[in-house]
Design a protein around this nucleic acid. Structure first.
Lengths: 258, 258
DNA sequence: CTGATAATCAACATCGATGTTGAGTCACGG
DNA sequence: CCGTGACTCAACATCGATGTTGATTATCAG
């Protein structure tokens, strides 16, 4: 008993396309409002899809958020690492090519990440929201992959000794994705943004090579570092990370009927 | 015509205390849900205050969020920097003591920040949400203060040449506040958390002193760095930051009556 | 061409959140 | 001792968001 009275023409039937449209819209809004701020209505509106259709693809708001976060993470993995070095070499050793790729500021992972982050600030932001909201940020596939690559580099003799892999993963990943947020606020043209990206990779490389402090100016600090900090060995310390698969359902705030 | 029928006993009259309770509750929830996920109802419930009371202190949800963010930032400034080095020496030059304080890993700003961040992961998280949601992250007082201090350090001869202050500010601030999020997920006892804090400061100091890559392994990279990147001078480049005070009202999603 | 399948959508019932109002209650100054 | 004003709170009206249902229609297999 329902004719298509006015309104926009019925959407062409294309399940996968619709699903993708919904995910993209959800990603955009995720970047704007965070996981708790996301509403199915807004997503549907932005995706130019009836809200009911969204519920056809994702049974509940929670599931939509969930699906969107893994989709975002997949996008990141895909775009930054491609299918190269995805699963193989899981023993922690890098092939020489991978090691070179990681370190090289031209065409290496760092530049790749920065480029992608600058080009897709929304995805990066959405991903950060997700990380901030997750009880186990390090379970994220992108996070794991990056950490794995970097750990491989650390074990080569091109790396300085005593690097803490986890601290570095936090610094690099987060920095790379937050930089575009900062840079957006200080640029107007695409050209400027390109310069910002370069500025970031340059500084990362500079930092990686020389740090920020002149060691000769801090003799006793340097002495303390070589023999390790008082309380701890200060080694790479990849600590097995108390697994504890706490997968709580996390009852939603309370909106909606039955 | 309203008696106190059942319910909890009326709250003792204490405006400032109430206001503070609301702000603290709001801060906690801000850390959990982000600015868009914050609801006045939840805040009131957590603060053990009637929802109407919250509206007495903050006319609207938006204003509550706003007030909470500035409060969080103030807490941060207060706790990390104290009232030392707040406004004076705004010319960018650090006194020798300040410079020493900044750099010293024992009792310096870095350790201070890390300690505070580890002790108050919620505040840090709330602050990060805020930064992520703000169109102008660098306008945050805490951000400005940290940047100012670091810039002072960069201009001393204890610093390596060519440091990009903005990139560093992003890395350090964000890293410091995200580290506790990661660390929380991997620790159980307070002792462990203390070690995590130390691990972070140690790595920051190590990174600052030696970087991650052995320069001798990357001769042509090193050569490129000293004479600057091809496209740009790659100098300190503190770029005057297009002020543009875009203070948009940012119309709320649309809940609520009239 | 035709019936089955499933994607799309409008409408419904329900609920929580917002912001407002007016009544109760405490504290303090005169 | 008694207002006066600030503070606290319950109840109201309204609106948007959720999740469900059943009608409609595009697409495909036979």
């Amino acid at each position: 008993m329902k004719k298509n009275t006015g309104g926009r023409p019925r959407r062409r039937r294309d399940p996968d396309g619709t699903r993708l449209a919904i995910l993209e819209a959800a990603g955009t809004l995720l970047a704007k409002d965070g996981p708790e701020g996301l509403s199915v209505s807004q997503v549907a509106q932005l995706a130019k899809v009836n809200r009911g259709t969204a519920y056809q693809h994702f049974q509940t708001r929670e599931q939509l958020v969930e699906a969107t976060t893994v989709w975002v993470s997949e996008q990141l993995c895909q775009s930054v690492f491609g299918k190269t070095a995805a699963g193989k070499n899981a023993d922690g050793k890098l092939t020489p090519e991978e090691q070179a790729k990681l370190a090289d500021p031209r065409g290496g992972v760092i530049e790749h990440m920065t480029q992608f982050a600058m080009a897709n600030p929304e995805l990066g932001r959405a991903w950060m929201f997700q990380v901030l909201s997750s009880p186990q940020p390090a379970n994220d596939p992108f996070w794991k992959l990056y950490r794995h690559l970097f750990e491989g580099f650390v074990q080569t003799d091109s790396a300085q000794p005593g690097i803490d892999v986890d601290v570095h993963t936090v610094l690099m990943i987060i920095g790379t994705f937050l930089w575009p947020v900062w840079a957006r606020a200080h640029t107007r043209t695409a050209k400027e943004r390109e310069q910002m990206a370069e500025r970031f990779t340059n500084e990362i490389v500079r930092l990686s090579m020389y740090g920020t402090m002149r060691p000769e100016k801090y003799p006793e600090l340097a002495a303390r570092l070589v023999k390790g900090a008082p309380g701890k060995p200060a080694r790479t310390a990849a600590k097995k990370a108390t697994k504890k698969v706490a997968k709580k359902p996390a009852a939603r705030k309370g909106r909606g009927a039955k």
